[in-house]
Write a protein that binds this DNA or RNA. Structure first.
Length: 210
DNA sequence: AAAACGGGGGC
DNA sequence: GCCCCAGTTTT
């Protein structure tokens, strides 16, 4: 199954994969980018992270900005007030409690206000190059459509995927699953006619094929 | 015009 | 478990 997904994704031209290839490896920038993209489609962020990082690219610099300055920089992403406050408080916490170094463990990251499992896993995998399984809404949706896991709870999906997926290729697989969800197994009107794994999918005959 | 989209906190 | 947060894209 993963092999088929891999072949499928190689045929796609997905912006997310380009971002992976460019490789944001600074844990702090990964963290802040995560906050910015919460409940927001990738293509709708409108250069917000670039504008913000031009103002401040370290926890120290970010902590010295006002909430208003952060808001102005990140508009028009949705939920900009909540996000600006979280970005400021996270930056301050990282400076004060962690001496400016973003934590590198899931458990430690989860103690931060504004950091949930998806964000914690992304920081750990992209920023620190350590094992993690990033379950965003795409990964949750597609693995449940396949019947690979069966639960409404993304946290349970993550636990199941940690069990079922091969451990060796976690970095590539994290990318493949998101790319597949964005490019083929989309939220509405999935491109079933182009899907390489439709024969194995629970939803054959249920979803609309295009 | 209306619905879909997508994480986490507070209660 | 339910509600809140704010914008863009799709139908």
């Amino acid at each position: 199954m993963i092999g088929l997904v891999r072949r499928q994704v190689r045929e796609l031209h997905v912006p997310w994969l380009e971002a992976m290839a460019r490789g944001e490896r600074d844990p702090f920038k990964v963290l802040i980018s995560c906050i910015l993209s919460l409940r927001t489609q990738d293509r709708t962020t409108g250069g917000a992270s670039e504008r913000l990082f031009a103002l401040a690219s370290t926890p120290e610099e970010m902590a010295s900005l006002t909430v208003e300055e952060i808001q102005e920089a990140i508009y028009p992403v949705g939920f900009y007030k909540v996000k600006a406050e979280r970005i400021r408080s996270l930056s301050r916490t990282i400076v004060e409690r962690y001496h400016g170094r973003v934590p590198d463990s899931i458990d430690e990251l989860l103690r931060l206000k504004g950091v949930g499992r998806k964000t914690a896993n992304l920081v750990v995998t992209l920023g620190w190059n350590k094992y993690g399984i990033c379950v965003d809404t795409h990964v949750h949706r597609i693995t449940n459509r396949w019947g690979y896991v069966k639960t409404r709870d993304p946290e349970k999906t993550e636990a199941a995927l940690r069990e079922k997926l091969p451990k060796r290729y976690w970095r590539e697989i994290n990318g493949l699953l998101v790319a597949f969800g964005q490019g083929i197994c989309r939220p509405q009107s999935p491109l079933c006619s182009r899907c390489r794994i439709r024969d194995y999918c629970d939803r054959v005959g249920v979803v609309r094929h295009r």
